[in-house]
């Protein structure tokens, strides 16, 4: 469903953020993406989201290729990719429900669809009672739940979670991780970038991909380990 084929991303000043990375993420899979800060985790997610194009190599997502995809197709593809960030990126002047509704509104959903979907999504992330709260009135964990509800509006094939627990305490981290696993159980693939090694160690059954200075150095799903 998602493949990176010998992908290199070079930035003019900082050099190779991602260097010759090949990996595949299957439908419904759950996978950690680890590595030190600056290892290239976020860059890989932006490449999958087609917010960046590889300098060389190819990114394939859900039948689209980074070499041929057109702007309109990028928009349609993104509806099938949920995205969460460490800093939540909620609109501060809108309530939880409005933040979720916004993602539907700007992709052309009908008002009656929005009315029924938004409460359901908020309930799914455990925030039914906080629908009318502004982000500033919510805890970090709650804000991340709103962001995840927003990421789920179009029943995505994959959720890209870029250090979603980076700003959260242990309890909230646990809650977000459980929620991601719950989302995964309903068939959505999850790619979770984190440098929280405790979280990785606590879940030994989950596939782990490790990056180091832009290179893929470990993939628990692969037989061999590259140097």
């Amino acid at each position: 469903m998602i493949s990176l084929l010998h992908v290199t991303k070079t930035y003019p000043r900082t050099g190779d953020a991602v260097a010759d990375v090949s990996l595949t993420l299957n439908k419904g899979e759950f996978c950690f993406l680890t590595g030190h800060s600056g290892a290239g985790k976020s860059t890989i997610m932006r490449l999958i989201h087609m917010a960046e194009r590889p300098t060389s190599g190819e990114v394939r997502v859900s039948g689209y290729s980074s070499t041929t995809i057109r702007p309109r197709e990028i928009a349609l593809l993104r509806r099938k990719i949920g995205y969460c960030f460490q800093d939540f990126r909620l609109l501060q002047d809108r309530t939880a429900a409005e933040n979720v509704a916004f993602a539907l509104e700007v992709t052309g959903a009908k008002p009656q669809v929005i009315r029924t979907k938004v409460p359901r999504l908020l309930a799914q992330v455990g925030l039914a009672s906080k629908a009318e709260a502004l982000p500033s009135q919510l805890s970090g964990g709650e804000q991340q739940r709103v962001a995840m509800a927003r990421a789920l509006v179009h029943e995505p094939l994959v959720v890209l979670a870029d250090e979603p627990t980076g700003n959260l305490d242990e309890r909230a981290t646990r809650g977000i991780f459980d929620l991601l696993q719950h989302i995964n159980q309903s068939g959505t693939a999850v790619l979770l970038a984190t440098h929280n090694l405790e979280l990785v160690r606590a879940n030994p059954d989950v596939r782990v991909i490790e990056l180091d200075h832009g290179r893929l150095v470990y993939d628990s799903a692969a037989e061999e380990v590259r140097s």
């Binding site: 928009a75 990719i81 990126r89 609109l91 700007v106």
Partner: peptide
């Protein structure tokens, strides 16, 4: 700009933006 960034994030078309 923040709204625009979110719109691009969730897959609004350029035309819509």
């Amino acid at each position: 700009r923040e709204e625009i960034a979110i719109m691009q994030l969730v897959g609004a078309t350029n035309w819509f933006i």
